[in-house]
Computed example of a mutant assay.
Amino acid sequence: MADTDILQAGDGATQIALPDRLDTAAAPKLLADLAPHRGRDICLDFANVTMLGTLCLQVLLNARHHWDADGQAVSIENLIPPVEKALADFGATPQSLISAGAS
C-alpha cells in the first residue's frame, strides 16, 4: 500500500490504514494524513505495516499525546509481531500508542 487509506470504522472512530513502510520518507505524509482527524476518535490499522522507523513512531506518539489532551481516543488494530518488536526495540509498547479518550 503506497498511501494511507481512511475509512469510517464501525464504532464511529475513523479507521486509518497505515502504509507498509513507516520510514523517514513517510513521516511528513503520515503527519499530514493524521492532522485533519484531530478532534475525533481514530483507529490505526497496522495490517500492512512491515517497517516502523523512529520518525514515524515519533509522529504516532505525538498524535496520541494530542488526541489524549483533546479527550479523543486512539486505538490500534492488526499489530503484527515484527512491528511489536520494533516498538520494543525503541523502548515503547503498543499501549504507548493508545489513548482512551474522554473518561
Results as ranks from 00 to 15, higher is better:
residue 66 H to A: 13
residue 70 D to I: 06
residue 6 I to F: 03
residue 34 L to G: 05
residue 79 L to G: 13
residue 63 A to T: 12
residue 77 E to Q: 15
residue 54 T to Y: 07
residue 97 L to G: 06
residue 20 D to W: 02
residue 90 F to L: 10
residue 7 L to P: 13
residue 89 D to I: 11
residue 100 A to Q: 14
residue 82 P to L: 09
residue 102 A to C: 07
residue 68 D to M: 01
residue 43 C to P: 05
residue 95 Q to E: 12
residue 38 R to G: 07
residue 53 G to W: 02
residue 76 I to D: 08
residue 16 I to K: 00
residue 19 P to Y: 04
residue 12 G to C: 09
residue 85 K to N: 14
residue 103 S to L: 13
residue 81 P to C: 12
residue 49 V to C: 05
residue 43 C to A: 08
residue 16 I to E: 13
residue 52 L to R: 14
residue 44 L to F: 01
residue 41 D to F: 00
residue 12 G to M: 04
residue 101 G to P: 00
residue 100 A to D: 15
residue 2 A to S: 14
residue 52 L to K: 11
residue 51 M to A: 14
residue 80 I to W: 00
residue 78 N to F: 00
residue 76 I to F: 00
residue 98 I to Q: 09
residue 27 A to L: 04
residue 7 L to T: 15
residue 95 Q to L: 08
residue 43 C to S: 13
residue 74 V to T: 10
residue 18 L to W: 02
residue 61 L to W: 02
residue 60 L to H: 03
residue 85 K to E: 15
residue 93 T to G: 11
residue 11 D to F: 12
residue 60 L to S: 08
residue 42 I to C: 08
residue 82 P to G: 11
residue 7 L to S: 14
residue 68 D to K: 01
residue 84 E to M: 12
residue 16 I to W: 03
residue 2 A to G: 14
residue 34 L to K: 05
residue 12 G to P: 13
residue 80 I to H: 03
residue 51 M to T: 07
residue 14 T to A: 04
residue 98 I to M: 07
residue 88 A to C: 11
residue 95 Q to S: 09
residue 59 V to P: 00
residue 24 T to R: 07
residue 28 P to T: 13
residue 64 R to H: 05
residue 23 D to R: 04
residue 67 W to G: 04
residue 90 F to I: 02
residue 24 T to M: 03
residue 90 F to K: 13
residue 77 E to W: 01
residue 76 I to L: 02
residue 10 G to Y: 07
residue 10 G to A: 15
residue 81 P to W: 03
residue 100 A to K: 07
residue 87 L to E: 11
residue 26 A to Y: 01
residue 4 T to L: 13
residue 14 T to E: 10
residue 28 P to C: 10
residue 53 G to E: 13
residue 75 S to W: 02
residue 36 P to R: 11
residue 94 P to C: 02
residue 42 I to G: 02
residue 37 H to A: 01
residue 80 I to L: 07
residue 38 R to F: 01
residue 82 P to M: 10
residue 13 A to P: 14
residue 15 Q to S: 08
residue 69 A to T: 15
residue 21 R to L: 05
residue 23 D to Q: 05
residue 94 P to L: 01
residue 71 G to K: 09
residue 100 A to T: 14
residue 87 L to V: 09
residue 48 N to F: 01
residue 22 L to A: 09
residue 82 P to A: 11
residue 67 W to Y: 12
residue 19 P to D: 13
residue 60 L to M: 06
residue 96 S to E: 10
residue 24 T to D: 08
residue 43 C to M: 05
residue 39 G to T: 08
residue 41 D to W: 00
residue 53 G to P: 00
residue 63 A to P: 04
residue 1 M to W: 04
residue 78 N to S: 07
residue 98 I to L: 03
residue 83 V to C: 08
residue 82 P to I: 11
residue 12 G to K: 02
residue 19 P to R: 06
residue 37 H to R: 01
residue 44 L to Y: 01
residue 50 T to C: 14
residue 13 A to M: 06
residue 87 L to T: 09
residue 8 Q to Y: 08
residue 50 T to Y: 08
residue 7 L to N: 15
residue 54 T to A: 09
residue 1 M to Y: 07
residue 79 L to I: 14
residue 97 L to N: 06
residue 27 A to S: 11
residue 45 D to Q: 00
residue 9 A to P: 10
residue 95 Q to W: 00
residue 66 H to T: 15
residue 101 G to S: 06
residue 46 F to K: 06
residue 56 C to F: 04
residue 21 R to E: 13
residue 64 R to M: 08
residue 34 L to P: 12
residue 46 F to L: 04
residue 27 A to C: 07
residue 48 N to T: 12
residue 55 L to W: 12
residue 35 A to R: 15
